[in-house]
């Protein structure tokens, strides 16, 4: 019984982690159709901001929940102005440009801060489930993921900004005809996506090995999940995260981490075969 509880908790944490990693990519890829191969590096930058701010004496929660997303969002803004805005509609070119960007960010961070693992230890301690122990920080990750999903949903569904964003993504010319400036909306949306990536980095910093190359460990899973999720970014990303997160967790527990990864990829291949448009290409089509 306690073991089941522990497994369920771990699965929820795994799903929440995946949701956090994917939301930013969901916005940038799912809404803007920019294949952002530098997504992992945005996550890495968020983690670095958190570690450096916390080590400089900033309150850890402020560092991870406010500083990391804001700083990476600003970096996203600069990136959009300097590279991405010239590449809208050129999906293959964005791939090349953002891959170059990812290498550049890794290079810059390495030369500035060195190729070493950094980090801060996880706050909050641990709690028992039966006679097992697990991390209380997992509860925090779950809470942040839920709040991020709900917050993003509310932003897109209930605010004027959200309406304009959705309209611009749906039909930029029509939106422009109605007096919206699509370049500005693109810029803001890209920064928003980068900000969510930064938030993921900040929240995951205490449970990861923070190094310049840490982004590579996330990027593949993030793309698989977002592609599996389909066009409705919030619903799709959440469902796909729940599916892939559970598969990964249970397969890893029952077999080994190697088969955990294999199972995840197999599930993704099977799903893409039967649902080529992703989960929300078939069901929940009208959701967000």
């Amino acid at each position: 019984m306690a073991l089941t509880g522990l497994l369920l908790f771990n699965t929820l944490t795994g799903i929440a982690t995946l949701v956090l990693i994917c939301l930013g990519l969901g916005i940038i890829y799912g809404m803007m159709k920019i294949i952002n191969l530098a997504h992992g590096e945005f996550v890495m930058l968020g983690a670095y901001v958190t570690v450096f701010a916390a080590n400089a004496g900033v309150n850890l929660w402020v560092a991870m929940l406010i500083l990391a997303p804001v700083a990476v969002g600003l970096i996203g803004l600069v990136v959009e102005r300097c590279f991405i805005r010239f590449l809208y509609g050129r999906i293959i070119d964005t791939m090349l440009a953002s891959w170059g960007l990812s290498l550049a960010i890794i290079g810059i961070v390495t030369s500035l801060f060195g190729n070493t693992v950094r980090g801060i230890s996880a706050p909050l301690g641990s709690f028992p489930i039966g006679h097992y122990r697990t991390s209380l920080y997992g509860v925090f990750i779950i809470a942040v993921a839920v709040l991020a999903v709900v917050g993003l949903y509310a932003l897109l569904r209930m605010t004027r900004f959200g309406l304009v964003v959705r309209a611009t993504m749906g039909n930029p010319r029509m939106a422009a005809a109605l007096g919206v400036a699509p370049p500005r909306i693109y810029m803001a949306t890209f920064a928003l996506g980068a900000g969510f990536a930064g938030l993921a980095g900040g929240v995951l910093a205490p449970v990861s090995g923070v190094s310049p190359v840490m982004g590579a460990a996330f990027i593949a899973r993030a793309f698989i999940t977002v592609l599996g999720g389909g066009p409705a970014i919030i619903t799709g990303t959440s469902i796909a995260s729940a599916l892939f997160g559970s598969i990964d967790e249970f397969a890893t527990f029952l077999t080994t981490p190697v088969f955990g990864q294999v199972a995840l990829l197999l599930a993704a291949i099977i799903m893409i075969r039967f649902l080529p448009q992703g989960i929300t290409g078939r069901v929940f089509r009208r959701s967000l």
């Binding site: 073991l3 122990r133 697990t134 080994t256 981490p257 190697v258 990864q261």
Partner: peptide, 20 residues
């Protein structure tokens, strides 16, 4: 005996297994 590919970052399932 459990082996981990070099890009594994989430060890929660393993930590549960070890506790079990």
């Amino acid at each position: 005996v459990d082996f981990f590919p070099l890009d594994v970052t989430d060890f929660s399932a393993t930590i549960s297994k070890i506790q079990q």
